[in-house]
Design a binder for these strands. Structure first.
Lengths: 121, 121
DNA sequence: TACGGTGTACCATGTAACATAGTACACGTA
DNA sequence: TACGTGTACTATGTTACATGGTACACCGTA
């Protein structure tokens, strides 16, 4: 209904915003996220859409949800799920194929990666 | 209707198969692709779905289509569209955030990239 | 010229995902 | 008890996908 969107569903966009904030250190472990209804107001989304994002994030162990209390940032996983690694590699393959096609050097990709890893350790 | 699928639409899956074959050197510049109807039989898809993939690939300058003759592999683009680079970078950001989260080292990502760049120069 | 192969453009149908709206429930805390 | 929390429904509407089918303009060749 809202759907101004470019390519990605709204709930996935929200997931990435949260993930990025965790990766950047803006959201720290144990920190409480806004409630489903509150986040809906902030982001201009339907509470159901936020709930969908939260549920998906919990399935990925990014957040922890305690019924009646709220949702909280979880500590990073140490070992990766095989399926997740495979999925991640496939996505990287797509990026690399595309980069190669338009003559972007591997070093350019490397520096983009290092740039992100550098943020807050 | 067919839709056994994991995640990606069929026409996009076909696009990536063709792109990968170009990147790997299986398909060379000037080579003719199977016709829309022929490819549909090969891949078990509807001709319209193949046509959609071909049309998208032409929009990305991967192939060239000559009405009445067929579709052919195009030479690689030298300079990248700004929007495409931005899109590519965003995808890489997503990969990196996810990799960081599950404790995959940047060096691991680097080697995956170099591995693909190594294929047939 | 006629014919077959090519990409393209339609229209119609059905399925699934997405997003919203609204209601209700079980739980924990103050 | 009252309130806020996540969750689970049902319902509605839109959009993307995929397929089926038909038709057209173009090219090359017999």
């Amino acid at each position: 209904m809202a759907q101004i969107q470019r390519n990605q569903p709204l709930y996935e966009q929200l997931m990435w915003r949260i993930k990025a904030q965790v990766a950047a250190g803006v959201l720290v472990i144990g920190e409480k996220l806004p409630s489903v209804r509150e986040m809906a107001l902030i982001e201009g989304l339907n509470p159901n859409t936020v709930a969908k994002a939260y549920k998906a994030l919990e399935a990925q162990n990014v957040i922890e949800t305690v019924t009646g209390k709220g949702t909280f940032i979880r500590r990073n996983g140490e070992n990766a799920d095989d399926e997740l690694v495979e999925q991640l590699k496939n996505k990287l393959i797509e990026v690399t194929i595309e980069a190669k096609r338009v003559s972007i050097s591997p070093n350019q990709l490397h520096s983009w990666i290092d740039e992100l890893y550098g943020e807050k350790q």
